[in-house]
Design a binder for these strands. Structure first.
Length: 427
RNA sequence: GGCGCCAUGGUGCAACGGUUAGCACAUCACCCUUUCAAGGUGGAAAUACGGGUUCGAUUCCCGUUGGCGCUGCCA
């Protein structure tokens, strides 16, 4: 779990803490409740409620559950189980209220709250039981002096239990802030069923952490106006609990991808380079000469040329492979679309010769050479441009041709042009 | 079933009593163009329903409907 903030670029101040190392703390807290009368030993079988549910199935088929108060709470054990659990003794009347920064003041009738378990009954040779989430969370938060508890709205209904617990332990409840849930396309709470759901899996898919943060921040929150592209810095500056909405939000992957392309395009290249480097290393295309000096400059220029057409980081390794490796293949659709003309072999051969004879290798020189040839041969420049693109990068979709030629360098371009010839004529 | 929360285009957000109901994604069309993106312009598209309150409701109140959540010796 601690890897999530680490890999998403979110900072934390202390910890991590391990519940297993803090067991006595929870057990002491439970004992304290027992001592001051806010909890009781429950001897009921652990599966009592489950069994009861089955017995209470309504005619409609729906499971009917009730708030049950067992006789243990009055000191009359309902069974002879020698290993009791500790339950909180919820008041039979009255209301429990708390302040929520996004939902406002909330009130719950105590009679609706069940006597929840604090410490589970000991298993096997355990001396004492393990804490439930309710106990663990409250004890930890009191001990760590937590002032704001910000979490999903699915905890709203459980909050009164925790407020009761805070008071029983002699502590003042913190300020709660329940934020709306993120729903899948089917409008149920986002879960593994919906595919990639954790921060890590989106990172692995090739989304930029900052784009993901920006997208997520806007799910259930807005700065008030229409601005959407907010870098993490601005997000931190502008965020406030007051701007949080109470409506659940549906996760829209298309918009996430849009944010990613925005970041891919707008980020200063230097910020993008480490991400691309990481990706190329992953795909084994990385070469150390790109780490600094002239190699770094070439790398930056290439990434800059490529990025308007990138959607996800892995595109650098797949779609843009020809820019980083001489081993690439021709996209079948590209060949189909731009290598149809039978004059091409002859034309490309002449183009290679013309380029080879160029006194200088730059954008305009390549441009002029190609257009001059097109005119001399009475063919449209587009025919040569498109066919050449496929020949040197293997794709129909790619950056503007002459910029591509400059980045690849004369030797590569001519070599690839001639290599394409053999493929064309062999066909 | 009980309790709770929510309700503006397909999606995410604005408008916090008075706007021709705004922006973005997605979608459609056109422009640009060296392919494809990007970008530009334009179009279609929403206040769930019914009652109130008010001179005036997207906005406040009630009900209905719908969605979601909680209802574990899970977290």
């Amino acid at each position: 779990m601690s890897r999530i903030p680490m890999r998403s670029g979110i900072d934390w101040d202390e910890g991590p803490y391990y519940q297993s190392q803090r067991l006595v703390l929870y057990q002491e807290a439970a004992q304290k409740c027992l001592a001051n009368g806010s909890a009781f030993l429950c001897f009921c079988p652990a599966d009592r409620y489950a069994g009861g549910d089955a017995a209470e199935e309504g005619a409609s088929g729906g499971t009917v559950r009730r708030v049950v108060r067992c006789s243990c709470r009055d000191g009359k054990p309902s069974s002879q189980d020698t290993k009791p659990a500790i339950r909180f003794k919820v008041p039979l009347s009255g209301r429990t209220e708390f302040q929520d920064a996004v939902f406002g003041r909330r009130e719950f009738a105590n009679e609706e709250i069940e006597d929840f378990v604090l410490l589970r009954s000991p298993r096997g040779d355990e001396a004492a039981g393990l804490p439930t989430y309710q106990l663990g969370a409250v004890v930890d938060d009191i001990e760590m002096r937590i002032t704001h508890v910000i979490r999903g709205a699915d905890h709203l209904s459980n909050t009164p239990k925790q407020v009761l617990l805070y008071r029983a332990l002699g502590a003042e409840p913190p300020l709660f802030a329940h934020v709306p849930l993120i729903l899948g396309p089917d409008r149920t709470r986002l879960s593994k069923r919906h595919g990639a759901t954790s921060v890590i899996s989106y990172r692995d898919e090739g989304f930029l952490p900052e784009a993901l943060r920006n997208f997520l921040a806007l799910l259930g929150w807005s700065a008030g106006g229409d601005q959407e592209f907010l870098r993490t810095r601005e997000l931190v500056e502008k965020f406030s609990l007051e701007g949080v909405s109470r409506t659940n939000a549906v996760f829209d992957r298309a918009k996430l991808e849009w944010f990613n392309t925005q970041y891919l395009q707008k980020l200063p290249v230097e910020e993008l380079l480490p991400e691309v480097e990481r990706e190329l290393k992953r795909s084994k295309l990385w070469r150390d000469e790109w780490a600094n000096g002239a190699g770094r400059e070439w790398f930056a220029k290439t990434v800059d040329l490529l990025r308007p057409r990138i959607r996800l980081l892995p595109d650098f390794s797949t779609w843009a492979r020809a820019f980083f490796s001489d081993e690439f293949s021709y996209d079948p659709a590209a060949k189909e679309k731009f290598w149809k003309d039978e004059r091409l072999p002859a034309l490309l051969a002449k183009l290679a010769d013309a380029l080879e004879a160029l006194p200088e290798w730059n954008h305009d020189a390549c441009d002029h050479a190609l257009r001059a040839l097109a005119e001399a041969e009475a063919v449209k420049a587009g025919l040569l441009i498109n066919a050449t693109r496929v020949a040197i990068v293997g794709q129909a979709v790619a950056p503007p041709l002459f910029e591509t030629m400059v980045v690849l360098g004369r030797e590569r371009v001519i070599g690839r042009l001639r290599r394409a010839l053999s493929v064309l004529t062999a066909k």
